[in-house]
Design a protein around this nucleic acid. Structure first.
Length: 717
DNA sequence: TCTACTACCACGTTTGAAGAGC
DNA sequence: AGCTCTTCAAACGTGGTAGTAG
């Protein structure tokens, strides 16, 4: 029996069946109802995270950054469907700076960028109103989690298994989003030092170029073209594909001709038709069901096959610019290119793609109507200095055109020497609001411990690649922004930039910049004046969104001890089999000190409840009791905290004691919504439909090995 | 009437099962 | 008997499109 314990702010849900567990040669494991999962409060942090990462700097690179930027330049759109849709491009990441022997959990969540609803008008996206009520924050835990730092650093990390849905009643564990809203994916690296406990340091990475607007149908034709040309699954829609517009038109034409011929056939055989019962097919077609196969070889029947063949023969060998980005996704695509002939052909194509890609990206970004005032003093070349060089990634023409880090800081380092703004420019609008940085709300945990949580705004600044069509935030944002101006936030995270990336100029490989956990004082967005909103994409909720950031500013970082956790909080992450070394599972409890920022909309009001707000318990400290394989589970994250932390039932690793966490129904409109349990994807009968009443008992006996769906394409090739 | 959404379609990709060959 | 390779079908991912609901 699948068991899902939901901590109010951390709802664990099974990932969709599509969320395969295995990776890279591992036996496929499918998340099944037999996998027990539960979330438990975060462990008590006993060792300062700062020690754990002393001298280290966790870095993350977006491997397919060029592709993302290409989309971003047009205004990335992501289809969301009721059943869930994968993201394309996917998040392909490279991690470094981790302790090879420590275990980490990687999470992906998607947070609204602003509080606006968008509409595609006049060839661009315009904010047209207030956003829908905030949905429960679901986080997608990478199936490999927890894995050692060596594991994460040895391969490309892909989150393409994550699916987006607009079904608020989704039971598959997909990430629920509103359509026509703007979102920003975030990747969280949470240290799970002994694979049984979450704790230690936490890092949040944000790649501004991965912002997207959710849609149920593509609005921007350019995005459609890019998707078709970049996504192998959409090959059929390419110019030379059988599902291209030309081919579809041809099919449509054939259908019409077919129908006409059929009708003619009926006419010419009318005598016979009238004389004897018509065949079923002729009968159907005569009724207009032209889609049915034509009658076999009637003398005057149009031969559709011939026409079709002709159409195929006339297909052109088009190589759209967008196809160039296949190169950046080559690892995904190359799987099918195993044969020499194909491979050579592909390589040749890839080379041409790269060439065109370079030309295109240059054009795209160089010509991007990014306000010069927003651009940092550095030129593209200077940006590259901040980017980790990757000579091997020849498919990524953007590597040479890296973007400077937006922010850089460490949590709770208000006294960190401020970085001169002149030497550290903020090319993107998100930077305009630093309040979020000042007091980022915890996503997984709220107790902010110095250096426990780092926020990284990745080098790819939003603005340069964000299309001007991305409407500026509503006037309300501006007002909020102004409100935030009364502080000097940038100095804070800028200073942190120096603190954590003080050798930026010298460390060319640094791609991660810690995000300061600013104090209550709201920093002053430096870019507020220099960056016209009209050309700036909405700010990130936690780090840039004026509204949220301002609200956060009123709430100083809190270090709330996790309430009476059960003896030995256990993180059941059976996925350890594929990991080499095992660590003692009896690590002393450690307090979770990460301070993930929280999206704007729910910030202020909730945080005010500081007395009962216990961030760590809410999310980061979630304990997982999952199937014995890569962790295919999904979290619901929220700032909501359980009414009674003591109610946590931390079951031992053996899984003997089913946890009994309070399950709270969630209403997005509720200022303090409670998150529903996300039933298991494969075990609908096991998990009640949303909303769920209370905790679901765990049946330890039904912890069969996970059976990952083999249908998932290889993630890392 | 317009907009957004859903269900379905056709095509391509991926994967594992089944069979053949060695 | 065991291994490798090939073939095939099913599942799934994809954008397009017609229909529907508000």
């Amino acid at each position: 029996m699948l068991n899902v314990e939901v901590y109010p702010s951390v709802t664990l849900g099974p990932q969709s069946v599509g969320d395969r567990c295995n990776r890279e040669g591992e036996a496929p494991r499918l998340f099944t109802p037999t996998c027990d999962m539960m979330l438990v409060p975060p462990p008590v942090h006993t060792e300062p995270a700062a020690k754990l990462h002393k001298g280290e700097e966790v870095k993350m690179e977006l491997e397919n950054s060029a592709l993302w930027k290409q989309f971003s330049s047009q205004g990335t759109e992501m289809i969301i469907t009721k059943k869930g849709r994968r993201m394309f491009p996917g998040l392909r990441l490279k991690l470094s700076g981790l302790n090879p022997s420590f275990r980490y959990i990687l999470l992906l969540d998607v947070v609204p960028v602003d509080n606006s609803r968008y509409r595609f008008q006049g060839g661009g996206w315009q904010a047209v109103g207030a956003a829908e009520a905030r949905l429960p924050d679901r986080a997608f835990i990478h199936p490999d989690s927890p894995a050692t730092g060596a594991h994460w650093q040895s391969r490309t990390i892909s989150f393409h298994y994550a699916k987006l849905t607009n079904n608020m009643l989704d039971t598959q564990g997909h990430i629920i989003l509103h359509s026509l809203h703007r979102y920003q994916p975030r990747i969280h690296v949470v240290e799970a030092r002994d694979m049984l406990r979450w704790g230690g340091g936490q890092h949040t990475f944000v790649f501004p170029e991965t912002q997207f607007i959710t849609v149920t149908a593509y609005q921007n034709n350019k995005i459609t073209e890019l998707k078709i040309n970049s996504n192998p699954f959409a090959k059929g829609f390419r110019e030379d594909g059988m599902n291209s517009k030309r081919q579809r038109d041809a099919r449509q034409k054939r259908k019409v001709v077919n129908l006409k011929e059929t009708l003619d056939n009926v006419n010419c055989d009318s005598a016979e038709f009238l004389a004897q019962p018509a065949s079923p097919s002729a009968d159907l077609q005569a009724l207009g069901l032209a889609s049915l196969p034509p009658p076999p070889e009637p003398s005057c029947v149009f031969k559709a096959d011939e026409a079709s063949f002709q159409d195929v023969l006339t297909q052109e060998q088009s190589l759209d610019l967008g196809q160039s980005f296949i190169a950046s996704e080559m690892s995904d695509i190359s799987v099918a290119m195993n044969h020499g002939m194909q491979e050579r052909q592909h390589e040749e194509e890839a080379d041409r793609m790269i060439e065109r890609s370079e030309a295109m990206t240059d054009q795209s970004y160089n010509s991007f109507p990014f306000p010069s005032a927003l651009l940092p003093p550095q030129t593209s070349s200077s940006f590259s200095s901040l980017h980790a060089p990757d000579s091997s990634d020849t498919s990524d023409p953007q590597n040479s055109l890296s973007y400077p880090p937006l922010l850089s800081s460490g949590p709770n380092h208000p006294n960190t020497p401020a970085l001169q703004q002149t030497s550290f420019t903020f090319p993107t609008p998100p930077l305009t609001d630093s309040s979020s940085s000042s007091s980022p709300q915890p996503l997984l945990s709220s107790s902010s411990t110095p250096s426990s949580t780092n926020y990284h705004i990745m080098a790819g600044a939003v603005s340069p690649q964000t299309p001007a069509s991305f409407a500026a935030p509503p006037a309300s944002c501006q007002s909020n922004l102004q409100i935030c101006n009364d502080s000097q936030p940038h100095q804070l995270y800028l200073g942190e930039a120096v603190f954590h990336a003080g050798n930026l100029s010298g460390d060319q490989t640094s791609s991660a910049f810690t995000y300061a956990n600013a104090p209550a004082t709201n920093p002053d967005p430096p870019s507020a004046v220099t960056q016209p909103l009209i050309h700036q994409p909405p700010s990130l909720p936690y780090s840039h969104n004026p509204v949220s950031s301002c609200s956060y500013a009123s709430v100083p970082p809190q270090t709330l001890p996790y309430p009476s956790l059960s003896p030995s909080p256990t993180l059941h992450l059976p996925n350890l089999t594929h990991q080499s070394n095992s660590h003692a599972s009896t690590f002393p409890p450690c307090s979770f000190t990460s301070t993930l920022p929280h999206p704007s909309f729910q910030a202020a009001s909730r945080l005010v409840r500081s007395s009962s707000f216990q961030p760590p318990a809410c999310a980061a400290g979630a304990y997982l009791k999952a199937c014995p394989g890569p962790l295919p589970l999904l979290l619901l994250l929220s700032s909501r905290c359980p009414p009674s932390p003591s109610s946590f039932d931390v079951s031992p690793r053996s899984g003997a004691a089913p946890p009994s966490l309070p399950v709270l129904p969630h209403a997005s409109s509720d200022p303090l919504p409670r998150l529903p349990i996300i039933p298991a994807a494969s075990g609908p009968s096991l998990i009640p439909e949303y909303p769920l009443p209370a905790s679901v008992p765990v049946n330890p006996a039904e912890t069969a090995p996970p059976d990952c769906n083999p249908r998932e394409p290889p993630e890392n090739v």
